[in-house]
Simulated scan of single mutants.
Amino acid sequence: MVNRNFPVPFLEERIELGKNTLYSWKKKIPTGANLIKVAEYFDVSTDYLLGLTDIKRYYETSEKDNSVQNIAAHHDGEEWSEEELEEIKQFKRFVTMRREARKHKGE
């Protein structure tokens, strides 16, 4: 992870959060969407941001994730759109994160 040492207002503007959104998290629970924005910006899991785990990332993937193409190749219907392939990639990440969380918890 790249160390990004800068003022909070800069981060809020950079990831399109409202003014003082991050400061408000001291008193109220962040929305899932905002939490995801911060996690994606710092390339860490939301569980890591919430202090639920010491594991920064549950998965490692590249922009050209061929495994998504392999999954999609097993479909017998019409061709997948780019949007559908992205949804498959996101679901794969979700399943991988859940599996790693269970391993970490010793389930």
Rank of each mutant, 00 (worst) to 15 (best):
M1V: 12
M1G: 15
V2H: 14
N3V: 15
R4E: 09
N5E: 13
N5L: 14
N5P: 00
F6H: 10
L11N: 03
E12H: 07
E12I: 01
R14V: 12
I15P: 02
I15F: 06
I15S: 01
L17K: 03
K19F: 11
N20R: 08
N20M: 06
T21F: 00
Y23D: 09
W25N: 02
W25T: 06
K27Y: 14
K28L: 03
I29A: 14
G32V: 11
A33G: 06
A33N: 09
N34D: 07
I36Q: 14
V38G: 02
F42E: 03
D43A: 11
S45C: 06
T46Y: 08
D47A: 13
L49A: 10
L49N: 06
L52M: 11
R57Y: 01
R57M: 07
Y58L: 03
Y58W: 15
E60V: 06
S62E: 10
S62G: 12
E63P: 05
K64D: 14
K64Q: 13
K64V: 08
D65Q: 11
N66V: 12
Q69R: 12
Q69S: 12
I71M: 14
H74W: 06
H75Q: 06
H75F: 15
E78W: 08
E79L: 10
E79I: 06
W80Y: 15
S81D: 04
E82V: 13
E83G: 04
L85V: 03
L85F: 04
E87K: 15
I88S: 00
K89W: 05
F91R: 13
K92Y: 10
K92C: 03
F94T: 11
F94L: 15
T96E: 08
T96W: 00
M97F: 03
R99D: 09
R99K: 15
R99P: 00
E100M: 11
A101N: 02
K103C: 04
H104C: 01
G106L: 05
G106E: 02
